[in-house]
Computed example of a mutant assay.
Amino acid sequence: MRALLCEHHGPPEELHFADVPVPEPKAGEIRFRVKAASVNFPDALMIQNLYQRQPPLPFIPGSEAAGIIDALGEGVTGFRIGDRVATIPFEGAFAEFAIAPAFRTAMIPEGMGFDVAAGFTMVYATALHGLRQRGRLQPGETLLVLGAAGGVGLAAVEVGKRMGAHVIAAASTEEKLALARAHGADETVNYAQDDLKQAVKALTGERGVDVIFDPVGGALAEPAFRTMGWDGRYLVVGFAAGTIPAIPLNLPLVKTAAIIGVTWGVHSRVEPDIHAENMAQLYRWYEEGGLRPEVSKRFSFEESCEAIRWMMDRKVQGKIVIELAS
């Protein structure tokens, strides 16, 4: 089969296509013919040896995809050959065939295209797990989403609205804020132009926010935390800004607020039944029209390196996907 191969760590331009053996599924795994794969920030980090979980060289990048099952490993139940699925292999998706754990695989709704399905699971499952299980977001509460036009940020805007929250979306350009409003944000803040802390406090009438969803980190973390209201929950989702912030611990003390980590990948492995319930809920919301995944750009398989570069250069709004002709 044809695959995009990382033989040494470096920029996406140094990846190359190669013919490699079709992988065989082990116990608990499925193999699927890849129809579309989404590009995620960890993909760009892995090829540079910058991610916390590094596969040994050489490896095929690609953490999320959708396609058609063509083989089942020992012990796999609930799936059949020919099923249309979305799944998270964490590596190996930029290829004609890929392997993934059955517990991170879900049947996709009949009306959902492979391009949408390929970028659905990781961002929406992270958003719902973060807001429901970790953030305990309640109807009527105020949610602040940083990086609100990115894949997981935009998903958090939509999921927060479905959960009944008042959503404040924060991003760095007016174009990105317009996208967040189109997906349900009640109010917006341009943190490239305005003081984030003062702008959010003005919007909340000095009360502060109840939950902060932060996939950005960096210099935004402390001013965002200072917008927190009493008994607030700060969700640490990722560090797209490239730096890990240090928040003074007197802040959660005086605000009686919590700093909570959100690691969806571990959650899906440790609590697969809850993950399955979350995915069922997300697909119901999608079929009802309550979730509208944003696929802003599609690349051919031959353009895979360009797609990763697009992600690294922070040109992405919503999701971008690689489509295979197989």
Rank of each mutant, 00 (worst) to 15 (best):
F32D: 10
A221C: 11
A325H: 13
S63T: 03
T173K: 00
W264C: 08
E222Y: 15
G318T: 05
G184A: 13
A257F: 00
A148S: 01
Q138K: 14
A240Q: 04
E174S: 00
V22C: 11
M279A: 03
R292S: 15
P245I: 02
A170C: 02
Y234T: 02
A180S: 01
V266G: 14
D273W: 12
D195C: 10
T188S: 01
P272I: 06
E187C: 01
R162V: 14
S304I: 10
L177C: 03
Q193T: 06
G113I: 06
A155M: 08
A93C: 05
S268N: 06
R284M: 13
I168K: 01
S326N: 15
P215F: 03
G147A: 08
C305Q: 15
P89N: 02
F94I: 07
F41S: 10
A165R: 05
I30W: 00
G218Q: 09
G217C: 03
R309A: 13
A125T: 06
L143V: 05
V167D: 07
R2E: 13
A182F: 11
P42I: 06
W230L: 14
R80V: 13
P109L: 09
G82Y: 12
V116Y: 02
E323M: 14
V116M: 10
T77K: 15
I308F: 12
V262L: 03
S326W: 13
L45C: 05
V85K: 12
P55G: 14
H267Y: 14
G289D: 04
W310C: 12
M46A: 05
Q193L: 09
F114D: 09
R292K: 15
G147V: 11
K197I: 04
P139R: 10
F41Q: 02
L45W: 11
E74M: 00
P293G: 12
P89H: 02
D186S: 05
H183T: 03
I322V: 09
R298S: 06
D83I: 07
V76G: 05
A192Y: 06
R309V: 12
M1F: 08
E271G: 09
A106G: 10
F97L: 09
V152W: 02
R53K: 13
P139Q: 07
A102L: 08
E13M: 06
N40Q: 01
A307I: 02
P248F: 06
A221T: 11
N250T: 10
K161D: 06
E13F: 07
A156I: 13
V39F: 03
S300M: 02
A182Q: 15
L57D: 04
P23W: 04
L291H: 14
G289R: 11
W285Q: 03
Q48C: 14
I168L: 00
R2Y: 10
I81D: 03
A71D: 12
L50Y: 12
A93V: 01
L4I: 05
F239S: 11
I47G: 04
S304A: 15
I60M: 09
P55R: 15
